[in-house]
Design a protein around this nucleic acid. Structure first.
Lengths: 139, 139
DNA sequence: GTTGACCCTGTAAATAGTACAGGGTTTATA
DNA sequence: TATAAACCCTGTACTATTTACAGGGTCAAC
């Protein structure tokens, strides 16, 4: 029986073997046919779908969002607008995450700088900062 | 009995009420004393600790890492070096996340651009991109 | 005295997987 | 041909970090 085994498709698509079972459970992919021994045999189309999932995950889409995208894929002609809306929303989220991380990085940077300067004292400015900062404020 | 209730400390520290129970379970904070009715009563020291956790979480430390940091806090004099090492490592991780997100953003941007230009065609370039990209490659 | 706001517990959900036990199959090699 | 390695199967439980919910108790105010 031709087709790809679980590990083959996992390798080809850059996902973990167990994730395939998980995607099947979450109904992102159809249950593939089995050999007499019960081994899953994936088609090349399955692999395309799985790469689709993987790529969208890499772009920060959740599995639920990917499910939506795949449903849209069925009716391609009407889908572009919907996809565009989702993509723009996702871009906004990514932007926000970048802003958050940059603020994090800046803070860490300042703390590390302070810490490096305070080698001679016995107090750790990083730990002090963690303690004193009030919730609302960014450190 | 003086002290802070769950919701008070949650408000003061900017965390969810339920998280306090979780932190207790995960042994990041000691079980606080209770009133006769069994209500948790947090001290101001508890609040400091909880703010510490919250702030460190905001900087991307996991609860396990925060536990380590809090153990270091006990022996402040010897701790600064260890904390510095952890902080530098965390900064590296944050940097990597920023790089990843920027690459994501760029890709999304390109796809959105393409999609906007192809209003007249019936094909959605975003979906196409997801399909054709090979795993290793960034889209 | 009763309503509403708070507290308690244990449990289950959500995110997206990973890991492991206990078994079957297939392939390669000695 | 035997057996060992490398794969596959299932179900279940675990990771991390909350959040939610059911079913009940308590407290303050009106």
């Amino acid at each position: 029986m031709e087709g790809l085994t679980r590990s083959e498709v996992a390798k080809q698509c850059g996902v973990n073997i167990e994730s395939l079972r998980y995607y099947e459970k979450r109904k992102l992919i159809d249950p593939p046919p089995r050999t007499r021994a019960g081994y899953r045999m994936y088609s090349q189309e399955d692999a395309v779908k799985i790469r689709f999932i993987k790529n969208a995950r890499n772009l920060g889409f959740t599995l639920n969002e990917i499910n939506d995208l795949m449903k849209l894929r069925v009716d391609r002609k009407k889908s572009c607008d919907s996809v565009l809306v989702k993509a723009r929303k996702k871009r906004e989220e990514v932007d926000q995450k970048i802003r958050d991380l940059k603020s994090m990085r800046k803070t860490l940077d300042q703390l590390i700088g302070k810490c490096e300067k305070s080698v001679l004292t016995n107090d750790c400015p990083i730990l002090s900062s963690f303690e004193s900062a009030k919730p609302g404020k960014k450190l």
